[in-house]
């Protein structure tokens, strides 16, 4: 199982990538940062980074304002 943002869960399957998970969650916004078990994942690794079973994922939408 994968836990997303301490709120949602998805079944884990072998080989599931960050991109797969974002698509399943409907997160299509470009300006998003993703951490898997506290590790920030680079944008260009979304298609290749495989999420381990039992992971805690944070997907944060970045907004204007400073």
């Amino acid at each position: 199982m994968i836990t997303i943002n301490n709120r949602d869960t998805r079944d884990w399957r072998p080989g599931i990538t960050v991109r797969d998970l974002l698509n399943e969650m409907g997160y299509v916004y470009v300006l998003i940062t993703v951490t898997v078990n506290g590790e920030l994942i680079d944008d260009n690794e979304y298609d290749s980074f495989e999420i381990p079973d039992g992971s805690f994922v944070r997907a944060i939408h970045i907004h204007h304002g400073g």
């Binding site: 506290g38 907004h63 400073g66």
Partner: peptide, 15 residues
């Protein structure tokens, strides 16, 4: 999230 820490409502936009 590790060494990146976010403060705010994570939703609102300055516009």
């Amino acid at each position: 999230t590790g060494t990146i820490i976010y403060c705010g409502d994570m939703i609102s936009e300055s516009r």
